[in-house]
Design a binder for these strands. Sequence first.
DNA 1: CGACTGGTTGATCTCCATCAATCCCTGTGG
DNA 2: CCACAGGGATTGATGGAGATCAACCAGTCG
Lengths: 243, 243
Amino acid sequence: MSARDNSTSLKLVHVKPACEHCRVRSLCLPTALSPAEIAEMDDLVRRHEPLRRGDTLYRAGDRFAGIFAIQHGAIKTYGLTLEGREQITGFHLAGELVGLDAIDTNTHPCNAIALEDTEVCLLPLEQLEALSQRIPGLLHNFSRLMSREILREEHVLMMLGGTSAEQRIARFLLNLQQRLSERGPMGDEIHLLMSRQDISNYLGLAIETVSRQFTHLQEKGILEINNRSVRVLDRTSLAALVG
Amino acid sequence: MSARDNSTSLKLVHVKPACEHCRVRSLCLPTALSPAEIAEMDDLVRRHEPLRRGDTLYRAGDRFAGIFAIQHGAIKTYGLTLEGREQITGFHLAGELVGLDAIDTNTHPCNAIALEDTEVCLLPLEQLEALSQRIPGLLHNFSRLMSREILREEHVLMMLGGTSAEQRIARFLLNLQQRLSERGPMGDEIHLLMSRQDISNYLGLAIETVSRQFTHLQEKGILEINNRSVRVLDRTSLAALVG
DNA sequence: CGACTGGTTGATCTCCATCAATCCCTGTGG
DNA sequence: CCACAGGGATTGATGGAGATCAACCAGTCG
């Protein structure tokens, strides 16, 4: 229930975007394209109005307008289970694409909201496919990013199956740290953008269990926790917990 | 540990495949292509040697040769978790693609083995992308199938999060019945191709729990179970269990 | 300041994992 | 054809990890 709601009418701003200067270009669709090709990409990319923390990017049921590439910030996607419970399907960082799950049905099956102030680019699918038709490298990058998303979800599946609460927390943190380090300097400080509620939902645990595990890991001297800021004091021990 | 192992050296047979006459064409890549375009597809599709139940199609770590399309039969994919436990990531039926998770890294992250006698087609990625370059419909179908795979995994995630053993079993069966009905006549009889072990692993439960839930649902008059054959007697009640 | 949201901590209970015994198909070989 | 072995499946008994219920605490905002 965010105050501002961008989901029904897409709000695009007419600022000339520039993949060329984008910080996460190397993680995103234009990887390894020539300057001329990147210029062509710029023509199809539409910059979306900046999202503030909590803003909705799209809702389940919305008609699919195109893929969103996260320029900076973070997006949470969640769906409704058959019983009506919300289930988080992913936390997405800069350089990742969201909305890929809507291509098949032309309708968004999930909701997407910003975890922090976030900017995204809209890539209309038809135009993206048309351009991919002409630029082999772009087509391949597109395949690769979709493949990466499939792989990401497989990792979540592996994490959820038959593992203890402690293991899930450890993996969650290590995974987050890993992905953050691909996007900036590797630090031992992780700023959690999501609530305990979100984490517990994502990991299939109760919120209290998450809290207890955090304090438990703190008592062991592995983590230092201040609200949503987690400092990894002993990365080796943390990694040892996952298996 | 199957007796025959096809994973290291791909065994292709030189039978002219024919997407045109394939029973699952409408679910697969050539959907809605013109006869001329389908003929072009046929040129790149290579029929793989038939798999017998238990045969390995590829192993984790294998170099990626291309996508596999299941012509008929069923494939189980599973990965190794960090602790060394096997985790099943999916059961794939005719008309579905497997190996999509390997595009990004060019290496298979999972193992794939046949759950029954199965025939698959190999679609070398480079050629598939090259052809997609020329056939817009093919490119779009490819996007859609990848999207469908992402969606499928999201559904699994939603199923695993915070649901009881009974709910998981119910959803598993309903989902399977649904997918089978898209591929043949809708019947109340489901032939499970996988062991209880597989089911429990997939659903994140203990094998005994799966067994108990089955008998429990049988006692309630919702199912009738004979080994790996499940008859859905009361579909309404089964659907009611999931939410 | 009080109301509120998000987080932590404690006590109890429940569902399911685990351990263990038995049963039942399937195939194999005498 | 039957006996037997062996894996897969079922059933029972027990314990524990984590869910649930409940109280409490700490920022935050009107």
